[in-house]
């Protein structure tokens, strides 16, 4: 295989993997910015979304309906999660909350096994299987969906946070919780909505990912972690940076696999994380920060 076409193929692979991480990272960043919570169960929302959607599709629902219903269901689950696990512990330290989300993630996985078992399930790609060829490299149409949807979410979020009242209220909450309360904005309600919406976003991410890599109870673990890393690399403070971070990791992993060996793939991402943490804890793109989301 020619050098250039391998290179391009690796870029495509990297973008595909990166878009998977990006979609999860968005939800992650939203929650963090609004509530200060680091949600290690974010990947599992994706998992729940994917499996629920597959169930509906297998019951005979058209894809669009299945997607919509699944997203709504997972959003509700997110809300329950917030009320039952986060809200009662809202005054605990970040570390405690982090571990609570780990516990919740276990619960999601366990319930998932009980409902869907351990075998991976398949979801057919949204627009068929014909791969697109470009300079001797191929990219799946589903990857384009993933990339597209992450960019679209980004645009929607930008609009939401910068152009709507609710969005600005939410930002206010983040900047100064007390002042926000004085103005009649309830941080607790914000927290509830932030987690719920992120859950829904995560579900959507899972549904988009499923045709590429299959869906099973444990798909959320590594994806959630890598998205976490992406967000941290991006600086945790805004979604575009997180998405950039996600694509960065995706491409880095891809190139490691392509030129070195696949065994080190995970180690590379975590090494990058450590480098960023030690030398640039505000993230690689932190020049932009000041304003969140």
């Amino acid at each position: 295989m020619e050098l250039t076409s391998q290179f391009i193929q690796l870029i495509f692979s990297g973008l595909t993997i990166g878009s998977i991480y990006a979609l999860i990272a968005i939800g992650f960043v939203i929650i963090y910015n609004i509530t200060g919570l680091l949600n290690l169960a974010q990947g599992d929302f994706a998992m729940l979304g994917a499996l629920t959607c597959i169930s509906f599709v297998n019951m005979g629902f058209p894809l669009i309906i299945a997607i919509a219903v699944s997203v709504v269901i997972v959003t509700i689950i997110g809300g329950l999660f917030e009320r039952l696990a986060i809200y009662p512990a809202r005054n605990s330290s970040t570390a405690t909350l982090l571990i609570i989300t780990i516990g919740a993630a276990f619960v999601f996985r366990g319930i998932s096994i009980l409902i869907w078992g351990t075998q991976p399930l398949a979801l057919r790609p949204f627009s068929g299987n014909q791969n697109i060829n470009f300079l001797d490299a191929t990219i799946q149409p589903q990857s384009l969906w993933a990339i597209g949807i992450s960019l679209l979410s980004l645009a929607v979020l930008y609009y939401f946070f910068n152009k709507t009242y609710l969005g600005k209220a939410v930002t206010a909450c983040v900047v100064n919780r007390f002042a926000a309360r004085l103005m009649g904005i309830s941080p607790q309600k914000m927290s509830f909505w932030a987690v719920s919406i992120s859950a829904g976003l995560g579900a959507l991410a899972g549904i988009v990912i499923a045709p590429i890599s299959g869906a099973s109870y444990d798909m959320g673990i590594m994806i959630g972690l890598k998205a976490f890393i992406a967000a941290v690399i991006g600086g945790l403070s805004n979604a575009p940076a997180a998405i950039a971070g996600a694509f960065l990791i995706g491409i880095l992993e891809s190139f490691t696999e392509g030129y070195l060996s696949s065994g080190y793939k995970d180690a590379i991402s975590f090494t990058l994380l450590l480098i960023v943490l030690f030398f640039m804890p505000n993230g690689l793109f932190s020049k932009v920060s000041g304003k969140r989301v």
Binding site: Q9, S13, S213, M219
Partner: peptide, 20 residues
């Protein structure tokens, strides 16, 4: 000779080397 993870999502990067 290559290895792939049990959790692999997309191995096209590694497969480019195989193709080569």
């Amino acid at each position: 000779e290559e290895e792939f993870e049990a959790t692999v999502d997309d191995a096209k990067a590694m497969l480019t080397r195989v193709k080569k």
